[in-house]
Simulated scan of single mutants.
Amino acid sequence: MLNYLIVTAYPTALRATATGWAIGVGRVGAIIGSAIGGVVLESIGPSGYFASLALPLILAVAAVMVIRVSRDDSQLSKAYVSAH
């Protein structure tokens, strides 16, 4: 899903850099998330763990919506037409 979001959110000249950064940040997040998940599981149990997953998921949805809303389709289509 990340690759498709990058294709629609970034201009062609920045897509490779954006993909690299996104994958790198995702890997760091996976490492840190595993450590935090273990601490949360140990301290508040499985039900608290699953309840605590709601906040990051809500933040992720909000971030995707901000990217979608901030993109101006008319400018993208004009750039595409002028390039071809």
Rank of each mutant, 00 (worst) to 15 (best):
A51W: 01
M1C: 10
V61F: 08
A60W: 04
V28A: 12
G37N: 15
V69W: 04
L53T: 11
A63Y: 04
R71M: 03
V61R: 10
V81M: 05
S43F: 09
S43G: 06
V25F: 08
A62I: 03
L53G: 12
S52M: 04
E42G: 12
I44A: 12
A13S: 14
V39G: 09
A79R: 05
L76H: 09
V61D: 11
V39M: 14
G37C: 14
T12H: 13
Y4E: 13
I67H: 02
R71S: 04
S70G: 13
L55A: 15
V66Y: 10
A79G: 00
I67N: 04
G24M: 08
V28E: 01
V39K: 15
I36V: 15
L57S: 13
A54L: 09
G26M: 13
L2T: 03
F50S: 13
Y49P: 07
G45E: 13
I67K: 02
V25D: 04
G24I: 08
L55W: 13
W21V: 10
G29H: 09
R71K: 07
A9T: 02
V25M: 12
A79L: 02
I31E: 08
V7A: 08
V40A: 08
I67W: 02
L53I: 08
I36P: 07
Y10P: 00
G37P: 10
T19S: 08
W21S: 05
I32W: 07
G29F: 06
S70F: 05
T12N: 13
A16I: 01
L14Q: 14
A18S: 02
S34M: 15
V25Q: 07
S70E: 09
L2R: 02
M1N: 11
